Computed example of a mutant assay.
Amino acid sequence: MSDQLIQFVRDYFKTLEFIPLHAPVFPGREKEYVADTIESTFVSSVGAYVDRFEKDMASYTGSSKAVATVNGTAALHISLKLAGVEAGDLVITQPLTFVATCNAIAYCNAEPVFIDVDRETLGLSAKALEAWLEENAKLDTEGVCRTRADNKVVRACVPMHTFGHPADLDGLISVTHRWNISLVEDAAESLGSFYKGKHTGTFGTLGTLSFNGNKIMTTGGGGMILAGGALAARAKHLTTTAKKPHAYEYIHDELGYNYRLPNLNAALGCAQLEQLETFIGAKRALAAAYEDFFSGTNQEFVREPADCRSNYWLNAVICEDKAHRDELLHTTNSQGVMTRPVWTLMNHLAMYRGSRRGALSNAEWLESRVVNLPSSVVVE
């Protein structure tokens, strides 16, 4: 199977050279817009392209407002602060995620709680979340969700839309609403993905995006906070070192962060966003080809959930077991076709090993079987 997969990938990408997991492409007006920022001398965090990028991204996602940040981790850090996360609070998330999700929680001096994922979506399981809360939490007299054992506040829940596939948002919204927990979506991987016709990242109190070099579109580095007007205004203030507007004085009224996206990067983002639907079409065509290839085999291709449109950021296949996974990884990588296992579960990392968690049978099952496949946009 590995040799046939290698040949399939080489035929699809039409090359005998090394094939990366996900490489950026720049077929549009990227050079023109970036050169324009250099000509204007506005290359830092103030400039017309930053304003345009925020406006265009809000329009594309259907969010009330969008606030550009230096990366997706910074966007999530500020979003958690705006959701009220304080030192000592608990924040529920999934163990099957990139480490930035948990790091943003740790930046708030809060503690992650790991809840299992659904096999169908690879995202946080609403059923597992409900079960953990029923067993471990209570609502106090003021309606605050707290743990029964030590009275810790359960402040927020952060599902991640894994590989661009939307999580069970209806279920998660229902559970978090009943327990008065803020929903903050880590939509870093799911730009262009829709759940029942609505863009991911726009369901919770806040949502975040990433434009890292390996994402479906890139600004080199960069992120975005999706939020309502008042929260967006607070996000912009905090990410701009909490500086009060003034013609020339430097007055900062609270602890702020130097998290704003440079105009240079935003220019790249504006050009990439113009082509996003073309990129998604190409990625969905590749996903369909992979699905056909794996049809009738012992490997299960990861498909978009029902009633969703996934961007198929990273294509993935579920192998029979860890031995088959390891053989596939070894053979493909040794022959210049880049594949990767899913991330090591967060509760297996040294800094999060002692964190609270529920039963993680699905996440552990997936950790030993999932392989990501080359997923770059093929530009005709």
Rank of each mutant, 00 (worst) to 15 (best):
H165D: 07
H199Q: 12
G213I: 08
Y259K: 08
A227F: 08
A242E: 01
T208P: 10
G220S: 06
L226G: 09
K198L: 09
A247P: 00
H252T: 06
M217S: 02
R234C: 13
I251T: 12
N265W: 11
S193V: 08
D170V: 01
A247H: 10
A187I: 06
G256R: 09
P166A: 04
E254D: 03
V175T: 03
D170T: 04
H246A: 15
I181Y: 02
A242F: 05
I225S: 13
G204V: 07
N258H: 07
F211C: 03
N265G: 15
N214M: 00
H177F: 03
H165G: 04
G213R: 08
L261T: 04
T240W: 02
S174I: 00
L261M: 15
A235F: 07
R260A: 13
A233G: 09
Y248P: 00
L172D: 11
Y248C: 09
D253T: 13
H252Y: 15
N212I: 00
H177W: 01
T218K: 03
Y257E: 04
A230F: 14
F203V: 05
V184T: 07
F211I: 05
G221W: 07
A230L: 14
L183F: 08
V184D: 05
I216V: 15
G229Q: 14
K244Y: 08
S182P: 00
I216C: 05
R260G: 02
L226V: 11
N265I: 02
R234V: 01
K236V: 01
L209F: 15
Y195T: 04
T200A: 14
T239D: 08
T205A: 06
T176N: 10
T240G: 06
A235M: 03
E249N: 11
F211V: 03
K244W: 06
E249T: 13
D186Q: 04
D253P: 01
G222V: 10
G220N: 05
V175H: 00
L209G: 02
H246N: 14
F194E: 13
W179E: 07
Y257L: 12
H165Q: 07
Y248Q: 11
T208C: 15
G228P: 00
H252L: 07
H252C: 07
I251K: 12
I181M: 03
F194A: 06
K198Y: 05
A188L: 05
I181E: 08
N263R: 06
F211M: 02
V175E: 01
I225R: 14
Y257R: 05
K236T: 06
E189A: 13
G197M: 05
H177L: 03
T205H: 11
T239K: 06
S210P: 05
L191Q: 09
V184H: 08
L231D: 14
I251F: 12
G207M: 10
H252R: 12
M217F: 10
F211Q: 02
G228Q: 11
A233R: 15
L191Y: 13
N180G: 10
G223F: 12
T208Q: 08
G220V: 07
L183V: 01
A247D: 10
M224A: 13
A232Y: 11
G207H: 09
K244E: 14
L183T: 02
F211Y: 13
K215Q: 14
K236I: 00
